[in-house]
Simulated scan of single mutants.
Amino acid sequence: MIVEHLSINNFLLPSRSLPELRFEDFDKLSLSEYKWIHFEGRNVTEVLKMIDKINLHNENVSEDDRITVSVEIEKPRIECQYLFPKGDLVFVSKDYARHQGYETAGECLEGNSVHTKDQCRLICAWGEDGAWGRDKDGTLHHSPGFPRKEL
């Protein structure tokens, strides 16, 4: 079950449960209206079909009209491994990285970079230690974590 949230004045209010998006629904979209589409690592079989449709779209349009695809791999689900080569930007959680056996975000980025497509940006968040990113050229970058402000 998925629970979406609405943010109103910094309060999270639960809304009704929403079903997973199916390819049949996604297929009704006019992709020419989008520049960036983000996917979460859920319902992977359907997500792969959606990304394949975007890739076909991108092959038939100018570079300026291509859609950027980002993918979030958070939960340690085995099928999420098939999403790595699909994103232009791939976000990996600390939980998933540890599930893969990595001890640091840098190890995760290095190990998973071989599974991504050329020019992919790869980011791994590591809790209070911040996040590491690997840019299109393979250079690693780090952003420290910031302490949470008490309300």
Rank of each mutant, 00 (worst) to 15 (best):
E4N: 10
L6Q: 04
N10Q: 14
N10E: 10
N10C: 13
L12N: 04
L13Y: 07
S15I: 14
S17L: 13
P19S: 11
E20A: 14
D27H: 13
D27S: 15
L29G: 00
S32P: 09
Y34S: 11
W36P: 13
W36Y: 09
H38D: 05
H38K: 15
R42I: 12
V44F: 02
L48M: 10
L48N: 11
D52F: 00
K53V: 08
I54F: 02
N55S: 12
L56K: 05
H57D: 07
N60A: 05
S62L: 14
S62I: 13
V69M: 04
S70C: 05
E72K: 04
I78R: 12
E79Y: 05
C80W: 07
Q81T: 13
Q81A: 12
Y82A: 15
P85T: 10
D88M: 12
F91L: 14
F91I: 13
V92A: 11
S93K: 01
S93T: 07
K94P: 07
R98E: 13
Q100W: 14
G101S: 09
Y102S: 12
E103D: 14
E103A: 09
E107D: 08
C108D: 00
L109A: 02
E110T: 07
E110K: 04
G111M: 05
N112W: 02
G127P: 01
E128Q: 12
A131D: 01
G133I: 05
K136H: 06
T139F: 00
P147W: 07
